[in-house]
Design a protein around this nucleic acid. Structure first.
Lengths: 258, 258
DNA sequence: TGTTTTATGTGCGCTAACGCACAGAGTTAA
DNA sequence: TTAACTCTGTGCGTTAGCGCACATAAAACA
């Protein structure tokens, strides 16, 4: 009852076009969506979804703010981005990933319209296989970016170097890399000397060999152990989103190509 | 001639399906794309595009690595993500943004297949308005994430607090915010005391007033001046990608809804 | 061959941010 | 009015990373 009263009260001052995305749609599409949009309160601290949850709704804020943040294994966190009336929460739904590695938390109370994800997907599902594959890849890329942000905030140069080596090696299918410490420093956004020191420590521990622009990983297991969680998170999410790329003929459960 | 020899040599050992995304497509779609895929060398250090460039091609690496990195005004940089045979360079093209705020740099030499962007867009352009709007929004969100990563690496707590306040206020259409320093610290991934000190300094400079969970911006201009470039970058890119959201009837040049 | 260039190693002082501890000050509830 | 709780202010020792300067070593070149 309170709920209903609330909604009624809110309804008089909220309308879907308060959200910029809904407002940007043609009247035709707006009309099609309108019956499926439901105004819901967004109280401070509400968690729209946790890392790994399968999303059910798209949320279009009218006057609330929602933070996307990544929560680390030790509990500390970092905001990855912030969404208000300018956007929506739940890109993973139409991207095809169904879930993300982040948490969505209401940071400033207000209202939002929500739309059943299936409705949004119906709009998209007529479309091509290429599109859906590209969207899933984009989500994997987004995950990598988000994790980079987290890593920059919380982890040591040595940990980041480990992550970086692993990500690079995965893309070279080997254990050898042609790359100077100077360039790595540029990539990580740190001092060259910092990379030198970290590389020296890794060498002492028997994890890598290197000399003038060449790096060889001699103990990959240990490298993974010394890396922060960021590598594993990105790897797992990428594998989840794009699993069938090596054995395409029999794509597993997740409908990658559709 | 050298070029041709190179291609010939490469052609015998490279095939489009060396790229995971191309490999994941159905044979039917692969056949359709095949005539338009061109194998090109990717020498170390080659810049595929600079921040702001209009992209012309999608690149599908077979055995090279490409870094996406953001270059700051002072010239220092941070890698945002890394792409190899697992992905493609140029999501901004099919996302609809045409350009990004990052630079794409070949970090490990090799080859890639490229595809004229228009070809990819043709595949998508039959599809709906809703789709295209969502894709553009996703690109704006990606920009925000990328900038968060850069900001975490290079800027002081005070600068980040300024950025954060501005991003939040833009979504509240006001100059007042209900938020404790503790929560802000969680968002930024820093100590609460760090936020206290930064807020104190901002107050001394007459930029903000605050008390127990309330913050009011008294001098927005100065706040913007004290913020790092990250706020302006995100704002400009968001405005570019989603410009017509307020005055929809006459959408400007950039075809937001199409 | 010797000379230049480029990559790596190391030391040193400096600073921003951290972790911790605790003191006020405002707010809520008994 | 007290008491409990929450938010903010402040101090202090520690540390990771920075900026700079310079030494050494390997590769490229003339």
């Amino acid at each position: 009852m309170l709920q209903t009263a609330l909604k009624h009260h809110a309804a008089v001052k909220h309308k879907p076009t308060d959200n910029q995305l809904l407002n940007a749609l043609s009247v035709e599409v707006q009309q099609r969506l309108l019956p499926h949009l439901e105004l819901v309160p967004m109280p401070l601290g509400k968690v729209l979804y946790e890392s790994g949850d399968v999303l059910r709704y798209e949320y279009f804020p009218t006057d609330c703010i929602v933070s996307l943040l990544y929560v680390m294994e030790n509990g500390s966190s970092a905001e990855i981005s912030v969404v208000g009336y300018d956007g929506l929460i739940g890109v993973a739904l139409f991207m095809g990933g169904e879930s993300t590695t982040s948490r969505a938390l209401v940071q400033s109370a207000g209202f939002a319209y929500r739309l059943l994800g299936q409705r949004m997907k119906d709009e998209f599902n007529r479309h091509g296989e290429l599109l859906h594959l590209m969207l899933r890849y984009s989500q994997a890329l987004i995950t990598q970016m988000a994790q980079t942000a987290v890593c920059n905030r919380h982890h040591s140069i040595e940990q980041q170097l480990c992550r970086w080596l692993l990500l690079s090696l995965d893309r070279l299918k080997g254990n050898h890399l042609v790359m100077t410490q100077e360039l790595i420093a540029n990539m990580l956004g740190v001092r060259r000397e910092g990379v030198t020191e970290a590389a020296g420590r890794l060498h002492k521990q028997g994890v890598i060999d290197y000399s003038r622009g060449h790096i060889t990983v001699t103990n990959r297991e240990k490298l993974e152990a010394l890396s922060c969680e960021c590598y594993a998170v990105v790897k797992a999410e990428t594998d989840r989103l794009l699993p069938a790329c090596n054995n395409k003929p029999a794509p597993p459960k997740a409908p990658v190509t559709n």
